[in-house]
Design a binder for these strands. Structure first.
Lengths: 148, 148
DNA sequence: TATTGTTATACTCTATAACTATA
DNA sequence: TATAGTTATAGAGTATAACAATA
């Protein structure tokens, strides 16, 4: 049974992402995380004190969905949410959060290595530039909650 | 707010696929389809009479999820499901299904063109080979239902 | 007036378990 | 015994609408 869609970049992009996603989630499950959790912790670690809504904008998680997402990590003891002003919540990693991120970094680094090694060596430098270019689609600009 | 994950191929792969996926689904919604529907119709069109379980294996849709999926398209009048033997169902497109696929092909072609045009011209020939290589992850081989 | 966080809700996608009937 | 199709169900992920409190 041949797959008649193998020459379509958009289709293969989707299939590749699904496979990689399943692989990474399987690996991260050993420390109780999903890929979105890793991205969240990594972002907060890079920008300690950033507010919840800004994190949602970067990761394209809507504010309504951000509540349970961030709250879950707070209750897991991975991060603190402290009022930055009367309405904003500043996010910082806890000790446990940084330790968990450290383990996640190892898993992700190994995953990324395994992934990139599947690409012939001389094509590897083109991988991220191509993916970034593909990512830059009509609406990627800046939308998560608002936008028209 | 910088995204500290932009150098990770796996992460950018995921983000690119999500953006492309949202774009294509938006375009296909004008004819009441999703990207998975298009792939399904395209596959049946390329292999008329193929059985439901084989389609599920190619598209990596589990048999339990294939039931409602295929049944929905049958009820929409896009395909016929006829017994191939006592237990298998052979899939063929109806006239309406072929007509719908024709419209979908136009939309998808336009989408794929818009997508590939975002990549600098000299990198374009590398796009599909790189994505296919990335797709070939540990478990992609052949698993959908069974496998260990 | 626009933004932040929130609740409630619903829809899609995907996953597992268990079952039947057929090969 | 393995396969094809099925049902029921549960968990993610994502979407909208409406709201209170604050900038």
């Amino acid at each position: 049974m041949r797959d008649p869609l193998l020459e379509l970049p958009g289709y293969v992009l989707q299939r590749a992402a699904n496979a990689a996603s399943a692989d990474l989630n399987k690996r991260l499950s050993s420390i109780g995380l999903r890929q979105a959790d890793f991205a969240f912790l990594k972002l907060i670690d890079a920008e300690p004190g950033m507010i919840q809504s800004d994190a949602g904008r970067v990761l394209e998680i809507k504010s309504a969905n951000m509540v349970a997402f961030a709250s879950r990590h707070e209750q897991s003891g991975l991060l603190n949410r402290e009022p930055a002003d009367g309405r904003s919540l500043a996010l910082t990693l806890t000790i446990k959060g940084r330790k968990t991120l450290g383990m996640a970094n190892q898993i992700v680094t190994e995953f990324e290595n395994d992934l990139i090694e599947r690409v012939p060596e001389r094509l590897r430098p083109m991988v991220v530039p191509i993916l970034i270019a593909l990512w830059d689609s009509p609406d990627t600009a800046q939308k998560t909650d608002e936008s028209a």
